[in-house]
Design a protein around this nucleic acid. Structure first.
Lengths: 226, 226
DNA sequence: CAAGGCCGTGACGACTTTGTGACGAACAGG
DNA sequence: CCTGTTCGTCACAAAGTCGTCACGGCCTTG
């Protein structure tokens, strides 16, 4: 479950945000000033930071800059809370590097939407790695190459695409229809059982690395990394 | 089609809105005061609520706040109807958390646009909660995966869907008919006792996490988070 | 406290889903 | 034009899943 750091010096605002986030199943860490924020960000490495611009000790601008400078925290999405719409330009600009903003007063609902949007955006962009390794299995997308314990496995174009898409979405079940859409591209004339046949061929060629290919009965297939 | 709760104490206004919504294919539920509104919102879990600010029993502000505080209704978009433009700030502000507003008198056309806008926004930007944790029980929807104290539990497609729907509506009792509709999808040929059998299998597989599955005698089943 | 209804449980047969081997069409390369 | 590969479909068998039913305990209700 995603962990979120909420930084604001107004207890009411923190409480409101905290309540909403917890209701949505997030783990919440809070901080009331800039110094605390930096400390907690580094200590608990949250998945996202909700940061008020006007806070004591070290202000929001400075916190943002410092977090971006540290390699450990540079990648964490920051959602800025600003009182004045006029400050938006600076917040989103190069100077600060926040990823999104919400102006006060905000509706909790709006805030939640932004947070989920940021988390999703990060998820999807991070997943597009081109060379993937899972134990003995290596999938090199640009080279169009697959190896199992260092030995090259010859896959046909369709098999390769199927494996790639499953691996890129590892952990998530893909229905046969979804796979047809993505691997065979809009060709819904094709029978869903065709997917099964290709999975069989894939498994055959991958040998022991076939353990990564899970069948989820009644739903579809899933790639497991471990 | 989406279900919409309309709350206003003026019968004329309700009728007008209701007529327009029904013409557009929405399912409409109405309430004339705040107490009724809260009751119906919790009972029928609409996709959106059109809420007049000035209503008897419990006023609009209070209804809004209470709905936001309940995890079961916190996510429902609220469209406020206000008589005075001056109230807008409070309505949209931190204090209330409405998602949009329309000032009276409004044109039906304007109202419909706002409603459709809110519904679309939710559809496109708000992902359903995908990963839920309740103590030792974790339900990961996209992965189609359930774990109890870290150990994976193998569920069939039907069992998983049943658990997911109950968990997403935690705290609220679901009748067997409702569950048949949502899990088995329009297949009302099926015996209601079938739900019992699946609940049994779920409980068996979940082990000690089965404590989250409550039987409400004479009514149905309920997922409890704690 | 007795009757009736509701729900948990175990069993079972019908049905669905998936893995597998085989086959012919389409296709690319020589 | 020939040949080998790839691809989509099919049929079949095995395994898993589903819906129903009957029984019995327990709770509710009068």
């Amino acid at each position: 479950m995603a962990k979120i750091l909420v930084v604001d010096d107004e207890p009411d605002a923190v409480e409101l945000v905290e309540f909403n986030l917890k209701s949505a199943g997030f783990v919440v860490v809070t901080a009331a000033d800039g110094a605390q924020a930096l400390k907690k960000a580094r200590a608990s490495l949250p998945d996202l930071i909700v940061l008020d611009l006007m806070i004591p000790e070290v202000d929001g601008l400075e916190v943002c800059k410092l977090l971006r400078r540290d390699p450990n925290t540079a990648g964490i999405p920051i959602l800025m809370l600003t009182a004045k719409a006029a400050e938006i330009d600076r917040v989103l600009g190069l100077e600060l590097g926040a990823d999104d903003y919400v102006t006060k007063p905000f509706s909790p609902r709006e805030l939640m939407l932004r947070i989920k949007g940021l988390l999703r955006r990060r998820e999807t962009t991070e997943a597009k790695v081109e060379k993937m390794q899972f134990g003995e299995l290596v999938v090199d997308v640009p080279a169009h190459n697959v190896t199992v314990t260092g030995k090259r496995v010859e896959l046909t174009a369709t098999e390769f695409k199927l494996l790639t898409i499953l691996a890129q979405r590892r952990g998530r079940v893909q229905s046969r229809d979804q796979l047809l859409k993505d691997v065979w591209e809009y060709d819904n004339v094709i029978d869903t059982r065709t997917v099964d046949t290709h999975m069989r061929r894939l498994r055959e060629k991958l040998g022991k690395a076939a353990r990564h290919l899970d069948t989820v009965r009644g739903v579809g297939y899933r790639f497991v990394a471990s």
